[in-house]
């Protein structure tokens, strides 16, 4: 079974071919970082324009790379949300065009589910597991019970964690994208010099909040008459430590809930672009160990937005007999756990 996957929900245009033996047969990805850098953030219309100009070429390149004809694929899977709607529409309609023209089934994939199932592609992980999804658009703790069955234990009530990194980088003048820039600066900074708040720390449950932290960085910066390079590095380190403390505290609560519900569960998965941060990985590995779980982090290329995880999620659904109609909608919002109370900023990329 081979599935063609397409991902266009934010600022990566991506296409991949994945088979049921967990092999990525081909992959093509184009990052739009250079197009968005002058704006210090993703501009939705610029993203959509780049997606349509490049996606069909990436599909062609992928098929050539794998040496496959469209007859050889079993389905076309595309991100149908949540994400920037203009980009989602480009990927979904391209997939619909290919599916209709070739007579192959279409699977409309939830982007978050792509992340959630990615450790099954990389590690063959069994259900259930606990997932911490940290990216530019999301910060959620979810129990992954089965394909299509997700229970949200917590989510951010304001900024996503990657957004907090981007905004902090902007404040500190560290460049774009903010995640790697802050981590680099923090590497030579002294985290103890600035006392930043740890929003939600010690509170019950597994929700997150990051907007106060960003404000505290701004205020600390304003308190310095002429911030030096070292001041900025120290602030970056203090910020990163505060984020690590909050993620660790919230994850510890979620682990307790997860272990009570699923005594046989053994893994905490860290996914999403922010999972590339080594300091956060370190801290979460400690928390997982303390809670009796093993930390699993898919390789960086599967953590950031990619099409292999979309193809894989499509394949998991296809194996269960699910497919979507040509009228499948593109959705800006699409929570993974329909039973979780709506959170204003959860499941939104902006």
């Amino acid at each position: 079974m081979i599935v063609l996957g397409i991902e266009t929900s934010c600022d990566e245009t991506a296409c991949a071919l994945v088979d049921a033996n967990r092999q990525v047969l081909a992959e093509a990805l184009l990052s739009q970082i250079d197009e968005h850098r002058p704006y210090l953030g993703v501009v939705p219309e610029i993203a959509a324009r780049a997606h349509i100009s490049h996606l069909d070429g990436l599909v062609r390149a992928c098929m050539r790379q794998a040496g496959l004809d469209f007859d050889a694929i079993d389905a076309v899977a595309a991100t149908a949300g949540p994400g920037l709607i203009g980009g989602v529409i480009v990927g979904l309609l391209t997939a619909k065009g290919i599916a209709l023209a070739t007579g192959k089934p279409l699977v409309a994939v939830n982007h978050l589910e792509g992340h959630a199932l990615s450790p099954r592609l990389s590690h063959g992980l069994p259900f259930p597991y606990l997932l911490l999804l940290v990216s530019g658009g999301h910060c959620q703790l979810l129990v992954v019970e089965d394909v299509g069955r997700y229970r949200r234990l917590g989510t951010t009530i304001d900024d996503a964690v990657g957004e907090a990194f981007d905004k902090t980088a902007k404040l500190l003048g560290l460049g774009y994208p903010g995640g790697p820039a802050v981590e680099r600066a923090a590497g030579t900074g002294r985290p103890g010099r600035f006392d930043l708040p740890r929003p939600m720390l010690g509170r019950p449950g597994a929700d997150f909040s990051f907007s106060g932290l960003k404000t505290a960085v701004r205020q600390a910066l304003a308190g310095l008459p002429a911030p030096s390079e070292q001041d900025r590095r120290d602030l970056a380190a203090a910020f990163q430590e505060a984020v690590a403390d909050v993620l660790a505290d919230r994850a510890a609560n979620a682990i307790a809930i997860f272990r009570a519900r699923h005594p046989g569960g053994r893994h905490l998965v860290l996914a999403g672009g922010v999972a590339a941060n080594m300091r956060l990985r370190e801290r979460l590995a400690e928390v997982a160990r303390a809670g009796g779980l093993e930390l699993i982090a898919p390789p960086p290329a599967l953590c950031t937005d990619n099409a292999a995880m979309i193809a894989w999620a499509g394949l998991e659904h296809l194996r269960l007999g699910r497919r979507d109609g040509l009228d499948a909608p593109a959705r800006a919002r699409w929570p993974l756990d329909p039973t979780a109370p709506p959170a204003a900023f959860a499941g939104v990329k902006a």
Partner: peptide, 12 residues
């Protein structure tokens, strides 16, 4: 982009 994306996908 709706019809153009679909058409470009079909053309490939």
């Amino acid at each position: 982009r709706i019809a153009l994306a679909a058409a470009r996908g079909m053309a490939v």
